[in-house]
């Protein structure tokens, strides 16, 4: 079976479990490194960022006690999740990513052409996700502590990322809850952050008809997970000599990663923006040029025959039979 189909099924299952799992008493905890929003009432497990940001909003001295241990526990659980599944959280589990993929399917159906960033633009905005990650740690710390000679930030800044996250606005809608669509006029920071959330939600829909996984490029969760790229269990290997640099991989990549095509020497190509969707392996025509490994065991390998089969598609069984006939 086609890996992309398997991925779609896995995404669908995890979407259902994470968005509606609560209805069936499923609870996978609230320490997950993925955008299964905690504001979704019936969630079957949620994003760790809400709790994490609240935990950070206390004086440094308190971290030497219970609070510190609780924080370490959260980080421990998240790290473990991140090491075992690394970027598969983005490409295979994230419900928010799944909805973006569905919108891309809709775009293809009505045959709207995709647009690509200029290489320069793409490179320039790569740091945004790390800045967001830093801010979602620093701002809560600034609430509990006077840092850098500034006074303590007001409580209106609490859980700043959640306030601006488009998943908070959009995902509850799938639970029939429209109450997160608002702009908080009660305070300056609140107004700023919730307006950002509304704008990003709008972008979520509009960009889906122009690009693939637009918001993922700026996701601080991706930045966080990318810290585990080198030690994660899943790796993406490349055999440089077999690579013809045909560019299929980078053209098919929803994250517009160029390294996958350009690199001939780097062995592990799970780069910072990689979401392990494995599209690159799908379209690689060279035997064993690309390979996904889990704990160093080959899971999915690029093959010429596989490529031909996928390219011919189901509409032309002729090619498939031609390939298999002579196997």
């Amino acid at each position: 079976m086609n890996v992309q189909r398997i991925r779609l099924i896995v995404q669908f299952i995890s979407f259902v479990v994470l968005t509606y799992g609560g209805l069936f008493y499923i609870d996978m905890g609230n320490r997950m490194p993925t955008f299964s929003c905690a504001f979704v009432d019936d969630n079957g497990g949620s994003c760790f960022l809400v709790g994490f940001q609240h935990m950070l909003a206390r004086p440094f001295s308190e971290f030497w006690g219970d609070a510190g241990i609780r924080l370490l526990k959260v980080l421990g659980v998240v790290s473990l999740w991140a090491i075992v599944l690394n970027k598969a959280w983005c490409g295979w589990i994230c419900p928010f990513g799944f909805v973006q993929d569905l919108l891309t399917k809709l775009r293809n159906l009505i045959s709207i052409d995709m647009s690509r960033f200029a290489w320069m633009t793409r490179t320039r905005y790569k740091s945004v996700k790390y800045i967001l990650l830093a801010l979602l740690i620093l701002i809560p710390l600034g609430i509990g502590n006077a840092m850098l000679g500034m006074p303590k930030l007001s409580r209106d800044w609490s859980a700043p990322f959640c306030q601006m996250c488009p998943a908070r606005v959009l995902m509850p809608i799938l639970n029939g809850d429209f109450s997160e669509i608002y702009i908080d006029f009660s305070s300056g920071p609140g107004m700023f952050l919730t307006t950002a959330a509304i704008v990003l939600s709008g972008l979520f829909f509009t960009t889906a008809f122009v690009k693939r996984r637009f918001l993922c490029s700026y996701c601080p969760m991706l930045a966080l997970l990318s810290l585990f790229d080198k030690i994660g269990f899943t790796t993406l290997r490349k055999d440089g000599q077999r690579c013809t640099r045909c560019g299929n991989c980078s053209r098919a990549c929803p994250m517009e990663i160029r390294e996958i095509e350009e690199e001939k020497t780097m062995s592990n190509l799970v780069t910072q923006d990689c979401i392990l969707c494995m599209r690159c392996v799908d379209v690689c025509p060279e035997d064993e040029a690309l390979q996904i490994r889990f704990l160093n065991m080959p899971v999915y390998t690029a093959t010429e025959k596989g490529f031909l089969q996928r390219q011919s598609g189901s509409s032309k069984e002729q090619v498939e039979s031609e390939i298999t006939k002579h196997d």
Binding site: I112, D113, T244, G247, R251, Q311
Partner: peptide
């Protein structure tokens, strides 16, 4: 040796794939 790899299957995608196939992997 090198083949056109259609990705999304829209017109511009196919033209892009054709352009890439003839230029990029050429030795």
């Amino acid at each position: 040796n090198d083949m056109v790899a259609v990705d999304e299957g829209t017109m511009s995608d196919m033209v892009h794939a054709i352009a890439d196939r003839y230029l990029l992997p050429s030795t």
